[in-house]
Each structure stands twice: as structure tokens, then as C-alpha cells.
């Protein structure tokens, strides 16, 4: 069964075609990487998947719910994390998690907060205002917020941006463990090619609003005759080399 099914998704802003009729599916438990340069349509696609942005045409089904008609049923089982969307800085970590716990109507909320605090090592700063935390701590708190409702679909926009390698690795390991335990489906937009290679079961290469290629990371490497995804990314972004037909 597909956790996410997108068909003919298009977003047009006046004369600008931001997303051009893309279609893809994310099976339950998969991690799909969304790769592309700036302006390729990644954020627009994620915004439409979250119901923040209305498509010009096409359809999105998340966990069997049509996002055009029944988005709130899907949103209750989804969550989202991005370093570019903040949590209220003056609220403590615990208060922030409490707010989102109520918004997602999480049962046994205090127990869930305690679990997340233990799992993500938040205990030392759980009563500190979110605005006073380091980048690594903020990322862990953002992750805790995005997991407060134990989501079945998780959308992550550059989850390890601006983190040091140690913290970045810790976050990636944690997400891999979480996916293995919960069978959560993850859609990951990232510019970190090593991260995408490590975490993703499938990669969608976006350019000018279109999916120009897709496949497992290893399949893409083989197809382009490259050793890392960064080279594949550059091949596609700069039209340097065409994929070798299988």
C-alpha cells in the first residue's frame, strides 16, 4: 500500500510553472528523497503535500485521504520538521511539546513528552526556553515536535542543515531507528547527498518542477556511472551527462 500517492501534481504561479505534472508514490515504510537545486520545486511539493499550498491541478492522497477534501484526517497522522520554521522561542521545550501535543490531540501527553525527552536526550534542557538552545538542541526539539503524534508520514525539510557532523549523524541514526520500529514513511528533502544515499530507499530528482529521474540511490549511481550522488546531482543540474540506458 502507498502512504503517499501523487498524480499529475501541478502548481502554477501566474506565468511561472513551479511544479509541472509530477507523479510518484511512496510505499508504507519507505524513505523517499527529494533532490533538486534551488527552485526545482521541492518546497512547493512539500507544501502541497502538507495542505499549506493548493495545487493548480493533480491529486494528492496521503494514507488513503484525498488532501483536497479530507486533509485534516491525514494531517492528524502526519508531521513536519524544517529548520526554516521555528517553534515559539520564549516557550520552554516542554511547553512547546505540550502545545503541539494538544494540537495533535495526543493521548497521555505528559507520558509521551517524557518518552521523547528520554529518547532524544532532551531532559537536560526541557525546561529551558527554545530560543536559548544550540542548533543541535533545536534540531532535536524540532524532531521531538515532529514525532509528538507518532506520525505515519513524516516530511523532513533539510533535517540536518547547519548541524555538525557528529550531531547530524546522531539525527540520521535516530531517524533510521525510528523508521525501522514504526514503519513510518519519510519524505526527505535535502542537499546532503551522503544523507540521501544513506537514508533513502528511493530518490526523486527534480529539475524545473519536473521529475527528471528516479530510482534507488545505487541504481542512480549505476545509471550515471558515478561514485556518489553529488556527481549525479551535478550531471542532472548542469545537463552534463545523460543516464546510460539499462
Amino acid at each position: 500500500m502507498d502512504a503517499i500517492r501523487v498524480e499529475g501534481l501541478t502548481k502554477r504561479y501566474g506565468e511561472v510553472l513551479a511544479v509541472d505534472g509530477i507523479s510518484f508514490a511512496a510505499p508504507v515504510g519507505s524513505t523517499i528523497g527529494l533532490l533538486g537545486g534551488n527552485g526545482a520545486g521541492k518546497t512547493t511539493t512539500i507544501s502541497m503535500l502538507l495542505g499549506l499550498l493548493l495545487p493548480t491541478s493533480g491529486s494528492i492522497h496521503v494514507l488513503g485521504h484525498d488532501m483536497a477534501r479530507d486533509r485534516f484526517a491525514a494531517l492528524a497522522r502526519m508531521n513536519f520538521s524544517s529548520p526554516y520554521v521555528s517553534l515559539p522561542a520564549r516557550l520552554t521545550v516542554a511547553e512547546n511539546l505540550r502545545v503541539y501535543g494538544h494540537l495533535y490531540t495526543v493521548p497521555n501527553l505528559e507520558r509521551r513528552i517524557a518518552e521523547l525527552a528520554a529518547d532524544l536526550a532532551l531532559e537536560d534542557f526541557i525546561h529551558r526556553p527554545a530560543g536559548q538552545l544550540s542548533a543541535g538542541q533545536k534540531t532535536r526539539v524540532a524532531l521531538a515536535k515532529s514525532l509528538i503524534n507518532t506520525p505515519d508520514v513524516l516530511l523532513l525539510d533539510e533535517p540536518t542543515a547547519s548541524l555538525d557532523p557528529d550531531t547530524g549523524d546522531w539525527v540520521r541514526s535516530w531517524l533510521e531507528r525510528y523508521r525501522a520500529q514504526s514503519k513510518c514513511t519519510i519524505l526527505l528533502a535535502s542537499h546532503n547527498m551522503a544523507e540521501v544515499h544513506r537514508m533513502c530507499t528511493d530518490v526523486l530528482m527534480l529539475k524545473k518542477g519536473r521529475i527528471v529521474d528516479h530510482g534507488t540511490p545505487d541504481a542512480l549511481l549505476e545509471r550515471y556511472g558515478r561514485e556518489d550522488l553529488e556527481e549525479v546531482f551535478l550531471d542532472i543540474a548542469r545537463d552534463r551527462r545523460q543516464a546510460v540506458p539499462a
Binding site: 502538507l50 495542505g51 499549506l52 502526519m78 495533535y104 490531540t105 515536535k145
Partner: peptide, 12 residues
Amino acid sequence: SRNLGHVFVSPL
């Protein structure tokens, strides 16, 4: 607080 993105993707 640049929090509206989180609020509007919740089931609120």
C-alpha cells in the same frame, strides 16, 4: 515567532 507553518500543518 515564525510558527504559523507548524500551526497550519497541524489538524487545527
